[in-house]
């Protein structure tokens, strides 16, 4: 006889619902990213989704799991969207595919599938690409450059699959350094922060295009917090950690260290704070733990950007904190009711 245990009631919240909400929250930012950076972004998105779907189905099949419930849980789609949002828009087609291969096959399924992966799959995929294919990963489309040069969907497709650019366009014409890149190079050449920031690339406050995209990421994240899909602790910890560290260094040496606003809004920090570090599977579990997790990631982002070998450090920072999550969990267990102490 099957024993039925209480509770007999269940909230309607479901994993797939959570995943869908996360994707919805990112849609406005993706649309704006498309506006600034062109068809390549949508192409990447399609490629990551298609590759992800294939890899997910193949791995489920290999591991003898039912396909339907896991393909519909939406977790692969979130990984695909996040990876696409993080990738430079102009890429050979195999780059997003390889990224998803590492994200889904290695980072997710070889660790046991959803819920068992210690590292954020999208960030594993991104970091593998960043380390393995630095050339492909370093060229960003200059904001709005694609419309200026009439670089349409056909041209994007052509570039992705054959590596050919239209005759009237050179790669240098439509791509350029990201603000983080430029800042890094500029400071390396002993320029001051204000000199670097005087370039038009830096937009109003943190980089043309990027600043607005990141503001939309921020509002999507706030919406998720409002809908109680993600806790506020991780983003507050991350942005707070980054803000405080950046401010301190900027106050001490404003010519050598970029300001907090630049750090918050020019790179992947916003996406990391609201959409990547908050991945429940790989984050710390308690609220206190999430604050610590976020703060650690924030500080690491600043450290890697400033002294590390890469212009942005969000992915590395999140992965490093993923490693620390079990330890954080261990030391931040909440005090259980009736176990000493009082409030």
């Amino acid at each position: 006889m099957a024993v039925i245990s209480s509770p007999h009631l269940h909230s309607p919240a479901k994993v797939s619902g959570v995943m869908l909400q996360v994707i919805y929250a990112l849609v406005p930012a993706l649309l704006l990213e498309f506006w600034f950076f062109g068809w390549g972004l949508l192409l990447n998105l399609l490629l990551t989704l298609a590759a992800g779907y294939l890899f997910e189905a193949a791995m489920l099949q290999l591991r003898g799991r039912p396909l339907a419930p896991f393909l519909s849980d939406g977790s692969m789609a979130v990984t695909a969207v996040l990876l696409a949002a993080a990738l430079p828009p102009l890429l050979p087609f195999w780059v997003p595919v390889v990224g998803m291969l590492f994200a889904i096959v290695i980072a997710k399924h070889l660790y046991g599938g959803l819920g068992y992966n210690p590292f954020n799959p999208a960030m594993v995929g991104y970091v593998v690409l960043l380390i393995s294919f630095p050339l492909e990963m370093s060229g960003w489309v200059a904001p709005g450059g694609w419309r200026l040069h009439d670089f349409g969907l056909g041209d994007s497709l052509n570039y992705a699959f054959s590596g050919q650019l239209p005759p009237h366009i050179t790669l240098d014409a439509i791509t350029g350094a990201t603000p983080l890149d430029a800042m890094r190079t500029g400071l390396g050449l002993a320029k001051t922060v204000s000199e670097v920031e005087s370039r038009p690339l830096f937009g109003l406050f943190a980089g043309r295009g990027f600043e607005w995209v990141n503001l939309l990421v921020l509002s999507g994240g706030l919406w998720l917090i409002f809908k109680r899909i993600i806790p506020w602790h991780t983003p507050v910890g991350l942005l707070g950690g980054l803000f405080v560290t950046a401010s301190l260094f900027h106050l001490v040496a404003p010519d050598q260290f970029a300001g907090p606003l630049f750090h918050l809004l020019s790179g992947g920090a916003m996406l990391g704070a609201f959409f990547i570090a908050t991945d429940p599977v790989t984050c710390a579990t308690s609220n206190r733990g999430r604050l610590i997790f976020g703060a650690g990631a924030g500080v690491l982002i600043f450290v890697i950007r400033t002294w590390g070998g890469y212009p942005d450090g969000t992915a590395f920072a999140v992965l490093l904190m993923n490693m620390a999550a079990p330890t954080i969990d261990y030391y931040t267990q909440p005090r259980v009711y009736g176990h000493g102490g009082s409030e």
């Binding site: 024993v3 245990s5 799991r65 039912p66 419930p69 896991f70 046991g112 599938g113 959803l114 819920g115 068992y116 079990p326």
Partner: peptide, 17 residues
Amino acid sequence: RWPLPKPPANREEGPRP
């Protein structure tokens, strides 16, 4: 004794520390 619930479809083993 209460029976162990049927495990979710993903997998049966594997504690996570």
